[in-house]
């Protein structure tokens, strides 16, 4: 994959928690709703299983499959947008989440990339991930989210 033919978003944040708690927050639909603006996630998080992100009203925002799941270290999702034609037509992207304990925190690296230059999808998720992940950090560290309402990552 040559860099000129791909688009990538990288987000690195340190969260004061344990890898196990962070993994649980990343995969438990109940917890996800709290920091992901009421989006509903469906998956059993096993490699090869389907993965879907739904709006509150049941419309599919994004879907794909679990490429890798190595709790509590690595999660990779094959990810395609569904509700915006110009993003959907770009096809599948890959989102990986890496968890690495660092002192009394966990370094979370979210990488979202697609094999296409100047991707609209990557541009869109670049606007959405920061609010979702900032909420996740606040939730784990303080029990409260930072933003109540914003565009979900998928809808950004």
């Amino acid at each position: 994959m040559a860099k000129s033919e791909s688009s990538t978003f990288v987000y690195v944040t340190y969260i004061r928690t344990t890898p196990q708690k962070l993994w649980s927050a990343l995969t438990d639909p109940e917890q996800m709703r709290d920091y992901w603006f009421d989006m509903r996630c469906e998956s059993d998080w096993k490699p090869g299983s389907s993965w879907r992100l739904l709006f509150e009203d049941g419309r599919v925002a994004d879907s794909g499959e679990i490429l890798e799941a190595d709790p509590p270290r690595l999660l990779a999702i094959k990810w395609r947008n569904h509700f915006k034609p110009e993003l959907a037509e770009e096809g599948y992207s890959v989102c990986t989440m890496e968890l690495e304990p660092v002192e009394d925190a966990v370094k979370l690296t979210v990488t979202h990339s697609i094999d296409r230059k100047d991707s609209k999808l990557i541009h869109a998720v670049s606007g959405g991930w920061p609010s979702v992940l900032s909420n996740l950090k606040s939730l784990l560290e303080t029990g409260k989210i930072a933003y109540k309402r914003s565009k979900p990552a998928a809808a950004a």
């Binding site: 860099k3 987000y11 990488t111």
Partner: peptide, 23 residues
């Protein structure tokens, strides 16, 4: 300073902006 993150892609080491600290 966590402003840049690097990833290995094949033999190349690529540098990416990390938007977190500036935000």
């Amino acid at each position: 300073a966590n402003l840049v993150s690097t990833r290995r892609q094949g033999r190349e080491k690529l540098h990416f902006i990390n938007p977190v600290p500036i935000n």
